Amino acid sequence: MSAHRPTPPVRGAPCWVSLLARDLEAAQGFYSAVLDWRFRPASLGEEFSIALLDGEPVAGIGALAQSLQIAVAWTAYFAVEDADDTAGRIRERGATVAVGPLKLGPGRAALAADRDGATFGFWEGQTLAWSVGQGNAPACLELRTRDAFEAAIFYAEVFGWASKEPGGCDVTYEHDQVIVRDGTHIVATLHGGAVESAPDPRVRPRWHVHFPVRDIEKVTAAAVAAGGTATPVAPGVEGAGRQAVIRDPDGGIFTVTAS
């Protein structure tokens, strides 16, 4: 999130994805080798950088403070009008605000976990001209959880999804998944089983970030060569692109999808 090309975000929509890495320089080297990203400083300070692909912003990488006892992970951030109000709604619903809200550069940010333990962030302030499913931004943002319907209620109450107020996100339930749209296109999906089915205890709730790539074989080979791992994903929906789950050397997990 930077002052470069700031834009008012859609309330409740994903507005950024970021990785907190233990070694910023090493993480930049890995993602440069695997996804061909280049980096520039962010307005948040020298411990943060913005990844670029073809000159367009893709994601952020920051150095994980030693005092923060959290796992290295890709985190989705959602746009909010008031970070303090959002933090209060999260706590009121039995979930956790782990860090913040804190002043960061031109805005305020916080890290939280929903009632099932899936971590996410929220951001108050202007954002880059960036949206899931558009340009070089992530192709998809997906919550895999034990009960998608219950999770959708939680996030709707926290972020104002499906409210009657203008400028927010719409929610529909299609083919056993919850679909979130920002008014123009899909920005997130929530998966967790059909309505009235028992929650699956084997699922570890997590927000997954899907990055589009042109050559999935080249990307997965580069990930392994750079010290990560790559696991092909069995085809799901007919017509969906080929996918692989990659774990970087620090433990950060993301998915690549053939575009």
Rank of each mutant, 00 (worst) to 15 (best):
E92Y: 00
V224A: 13
L64D: 06
A151R: 06
D36T: 03
K164P: 09
Q134A: 11
V256R: 01
G252P: 04
Q69F: 13
A51L: 02
K103T: 14
I186D: 07
A223C: 07
F149L: 10
H185P: 14
R181Y: 12
F149V: 06
S259G: 10
E174D: 15
A226H: 09
A162I: 10
I253G: 13
G100E: 03
P6H: 00
H185A: 09
V17F: 12
P232L: 11
D23T: 03
D147Y: 10
P41K: 09
A234E: 15
D147V: 02
R38P: 04
H175F: 10
C169L: 09
Q126S: 11
G55D: 07
Y31D: 00
T229D: 05
I50A: 04
S131T: 15
H4E: 15
G167D: 09
F154S: 07
G167I: 06
I90C: 00
A129H: 06
P166L: 06
A59H: 00
E92D: 08
L143R: 01
R115L: 06
Q126C: 13
L19Q: 00
L141P: 05
A230L: 04
E165Y: 11
V180L: 14
A87W: 00
P232E: 11
Q69T: 10
Q126W: 13
Q177N: 08
A222I: 05
G168R: 09
R242F: 11
S67E: 08
H185C: 14
G107I: 02
R146Y: 10
A71N: 14
V213T: 13
E217F: 07
S49E: 09
F122M: 01
G107V: 09
D170M: 08
V219F: 01
G251L: 02
S131W: 12
F48R: 06
C140G: 13
Y155H: 12
L141V: 03
S43K: 12
I50T: 01
T257N: 13
D200I: 07
G251M: 08
V209L: 06
T255Q: 12
A156S: 13
P212W: 08
T229R: 06
Q69L: 11
F211E: 02
A87K: 02
L53A: 14
I216G: 11
E124D: 07
V195K: 06
W37A: 05
W123P: 14
E196T: 07
T229C: 03
R202A: 10
T189C: 12
D82F: 02
H208R: 08
C169N: 07
P138N: 12
